[in-house]
């Protein structure tokens, strides 16, 4: 690691003002991705603000029926919380599909959203990476890109966002609550992460001086009809090649509302609201799901090693929708 100064803060205001005033300052909460990247000098904070003393650990019901997840609640606390397990089992499953039990005990909800890509080139200082070092080029573009994006990428970056939790949050249409110098605001999940465009060094629309304080879940949790399906290279403890989060509101076999997000395919959890609408009022059946899967992959563009992802994404989408609607083969 490069040398840095360290300060434990006891208030949100203090954290935010430190973020603003101290050069190259970063928040540390769980640390499970930040420290990893600091060790390989990919991230080089000059100042670390330890926010673990802040009171942001609660998971509680919100007025109007939603749920608030504290930014510092651990991924494990969140996944196993009775309110989450009971009302948002999709979120619970997605979190448990990620990382390992040890990492989930330490990783926080806020940190999970802010984890960086797992692109091998991002992690390797001896290679070109626009996300790590703007203007240096993208080695993945013509390199080994099996794990990379098929949607929403740019010539500057084809990395994917690695979170499982974020995929479920996108399908659930959660909002991220953040506090900055100008006060608090909430950001819809759809707008939280961003596409790489020509500045892939920026992962999200969170401002540099903003601190995530929590996540708001809307009342509808799709606890009756949901699925989180993750396809990966081994049975556990690996990142998604493709993952799908599905929440359905159904009446009989008719779909009233569908929320679908794809992971492992883009720089952010991928949603196509227009495609979700295709299912509304339709019967839950394979053909309708295929229509949605085609619509979701519209505009997909693969690279040398990840062509399979387009097919995989479509087939995983269909399967997840079948699971969510309790359809057999």
């Amino acid at each position: 690691m490069k040398p840095f100064s360290y300060q434990k803060v006891m208030g949100i205001t203090e954290a935010v003002s430190d973020l603003k005033e101290k050069n190259q300052s970063y928040i540390i909460a769980g640390g499970t991705n930040l420290l990893d990247l600091m060790k390989v000098h990919v991230m080089q904070p000059q100042h670390l603000i330890d926010i673990n003393g802040l009171k942001l650990h609660d998971i509680s019901e919100r007025d109007g029926g939603g749920l608030h997840l504290g930014a510092l609640a651990s991924n494990a606390q969140t996944a196993y919380h009775p309110l989450v397990e009971g009302r948002y089992p999709l979120l619970s499953q997605a979190i448990l599909a990620g990382a390992s039990a040890q990492l989930r005990n330490k990783a926080t909800n806020g940190g999970n959203l802010l984890q960086r890509t797992r692109c091998s080139y991002f992690y390797d200082n001896s290679t070109s990476c626009n996300k790590r070092e703007p203007e240096s080029g993208c080695a993945a573009l013509h390199g080994y890109n099996r794990d990379h994006a098929i949607l929403g990428h740019s010539e500057h970056c084809i990395a994917t966002h690695p979170s499982d939790m974020a995929v479920a949050l996108a399908a659930l249409e959660a909002r991220v609550v953040a506090t900055g110098p100008d006060g608090a605001r909430s950001i819809p999940m759809a707008d939280f992460h961003r596409l790489p465009s020509n500045n892939p060094q920026v992962d999200s629309n969170l401002e540099a001086e903003e601190l995530i304080t929590g996540i708001q879940l809307p009342p509808e949790g799709f606890a009756e009809h949901y699925a989180y399906l993750k396809v990966r290279d081994r049975a556990s403890y690996s990142f998604a090649l493709v993952s799908v989060a599905v929440g359905l509101r159904m009446e009989g076999n008719t779909i009233l509302k569908a929320r679908v997000a794809l992971g492992g395919v883009a720089h952010k959890p991928w949603r196509v609201p227009g495609a979700e609408e295709l299912l509304e009022g339709k019967e839950a059946d394979r053909e309708n799901f295929k229509v949605l899967s085609e619509a979701y992959l519209t505009g997909s563009e693969a690279f040398k090693h990840n062509k399979f992802k387009i097919k995989l994404a479509k087939q995983t989408l269909v399967r997840a929708l079948m699971q969510a609607s309790n359809l057999k083969l």
Binding site: Y121, H142, G143, Y144, S236, Y237
Partner: peptide, 22 residues
């Protein structure tokens, strides 16, 4: 990676060995 001449998946997240669940 033939461009860099380097094994590029050089950690245990990139190089998969079996886990218990396998």
């Amino acid at each position: 990676d033939t461009h860099y001449g380097r094994f590029i998946n050089h950690d245990l997240a990139g190089y998969h060995i079996p886990v218990n669940a396998d």
